[in-house]
Nucleic acid binder design. Sequence first.
DNA 1: GCACTGGAAACAGAA
DNA 2: TATTCTGTTTCCAGT
Length: 855
Amino acid sequence: MPSTSFPAPSKFPLGPPAAACGSGETLGPAPPSGGTMKSAEEEHYSYASPGVSSALLPGSAQPSLPAPGHDLQISAPGVPATAAGQPPGYGGAVDSGPSSYFLSSGHVRPNGAPALESPRIEITSYMGLHHGNNQCFHDVEVEDILPGSRRPPSTATLSLPNLEAYRDPSCLSPASSLSSRSCNSEASSYESNFSYPYASPQTSPWQSPCVSPKTTDPEEGFPRGLGACGLLGSPRHSPSTSPRTSVTEESWLGARTSRPPSPCNKRKYGLNGRQPSCSPHRSPTPSPRSSPRVSVTDDTWLGNSTQYTSSAIVAAINALSTDGSLELDGVPVKARKTTPDHCPSVALKVEPAGEDLGTTPPTAEFLPEEYPSFQHVRKGAFCDQYLSVPQHPYQWARPRSPTAYGSPSLPALDWQLPSRSGPYELRIEVQPKPHHRAHYETEGSRGAVKASAGGHPSVQLHGYLENEPLTLQLFIGTADDRLLRPHAFYQVHRITGKTVSTTSHEAILSNTKVLEIPLLPENNMRAIVDCAGILKLRNSDIELRKGETDIGRKNTRVRLVFRVHIPQPSGRTLSLQVASNPIECSQRSAQELPLVEKQSAASCPVLGGKKMVLSGHNFLQDSKVIFVEKAPDGHHIWEMEAKMDRELCKPNSLVVEIPPFRNQRITSPVQVSFYVCNGKRKRSQCQRFTYLPANAPAIKTEPTDDYEPVLTCGLMGQGPSPLPKPCYSQPLAVPPDPGSCLLPSFLPCPPRTTMVSPPPSASPKLHDLSAATYSKGMAGPGLGLPRPAGGVLAVEETPRLVGVHPGPPQPPPPALLRPQPCGPAHPSATGHQLPQRPKAPRSESTAPRPLPPPE
DNA sequence: GCACTGGAAACAGAA
DNA sequence: TATTCTGTTTCCAGT
């Protein structure tokens, strides 16, 4: 095998990334797992059961929850982790896993000491790769271990980037800004560059015949073996040329500029979106790399999962039947990055190691002991390192070092963090508009995300009185019912230009682009986010990514996720996170799907009959508002269409009469949800709603919660509640401390707003729970970490793999991982409802009407 | 000329 | 299996 050595870019931004990747130094309140997350989540969904509630029980909470993805990774190196939920074949493929894993880990001695060896290609198993979340898995790489900047280039181990590559950059549009290009792709190209005999696409029957000889990237001079495939597959790539090579973007485009007369020009999707070969060069059947695991989307896991099932099966079969090496290789042929573009290569060549000072953790910070924890850190490291990001002249980045990035271990992006802890609170002062059309790489930027009232979203860190600037991290997160995690199909896109007043810096953490924005004391630690756009990655590219379990179709809602890492006197770092309201990024969806932004009431006595005003978008005269109570498994226990006041129906508002609940004798509040339906398949997100016992005062329905007030205060007649409450679960709003309010926090559908922007009046409860900081050692089991008073946790001195890497992936505590199915699915969560549901499936008073399948 | 935007055609895949 | 409906991706044109 060719040994390739790359100067491991040490430079950069890994810093944050690394941190982000999470190693774990910071114990997050709940390190849900990333990679695992999916599986875990899937599990949840698949059966969400009472278990959920139980899971929530303090005792049940598992101590260190490895980040989802981490779990996988966690699996001890060498141990082919069979990611839960992953088809054997998949995992099997990984076997390379072992090796790969070992390789990776090879850099890291068991003792945590990095082992730098001669250059070589490091193949990381794709297990657990999916998403950046799984970072941890990869994490075990030298990069993580050593401060990138420090690492001798020559000794760097090449980790196949592409695993995480989120897409094939080959298709970048000239119009796309650098920032919009995916680095991952590059990574993939790297992978492709290294062709492993066994992995050669050619070898696989499933692979494109054309793959081969693409060979060398003129510019880079790298052999582009596999990469070729990817390239070819990309519409933008010349059949046998490296995109970046002889054919310039322009020339190439020129050839295909106008809309293709024939379908060939347009991206075609074969199985899994592969582009059928239009030319002999194109791969007719790229190897099916799609994730064997069925990804779950709103629609799918809640009931429509079948939709993807077949493809998943096919994928799985392919995975098994396909050249194992390929699998091992971990690089989806199709997805391989083709364009040498910018990322890796460029960075590699151009950027001096350590360029990104900001992100590179100070060497000093890396103590030998810490290496281990550091290992988890990146999966996407490879790419990260290569991300070429223009450095802003502003020096804001510097200060952050010790803070956010300096720490060798920061929570992975898929870890759920509280928005407040102790005196600190990270709050979104101005929410983004509910719709923002994301741009494709083939398009030009569509600008920065804006606020509904004009202007741009803004975020402020309250309670921070130091004079040191901090860095606000922003990435695009999911907005589905599951745990918040980086969105696989969207990336934040850095906007620059005269219209942008906020400086920003890009970094990539585990496949996820992270925009770093300075939080300056002089600005009251407030940042106006006018520099963040949203880039849409092609579904087909992402779905082919190894380990990717999500599907892109109809998975078009995102949230802006902000994080800040506050250094504590103890030397530890407190990490806070807040997510915005969901943002619909699809042009079509934005135009057609109803969207509820506000509701005048959040609860009402079981008798119903009160009017509720919904404000939002895309409401029609014939829109329907359906109230539903869901069982843990997602099926609807009760459904009722609310009466509409058609006369008052407007495109932006609806007036409905709250229907009576099926059970008039509830003794405690019952969480249900409702959605606006404009017809088949055109439904809004579920919004939370609480039915209160008939004799109970319309008030708190839940234990003190930050958003509780909102829920109740929004009672009828009081005007639209400012807080839309889609049923996004932000489980992690819940603190890791099981003993605390875990249970309460896990409401069926905690309004994401909870985490996002808790009312100032938020109860201290969240607070406690929030203990945002992670302890490196993450001691405690899971959630219940011993935490110093004050909520700020101490990062233990001991490097901790726990939670992230420690041995075999441990299934995250159900409680934490389990995303709450949208809606009332978990009455049990409240602890009161469960028993009741079975009893009264339907209320006589409410004639069930046929409704669309559960979401 | 560039960054945005809005709109819609061309496709692919699901229903 | 054919057709229709939906959703995705790309391209065009205007600001």
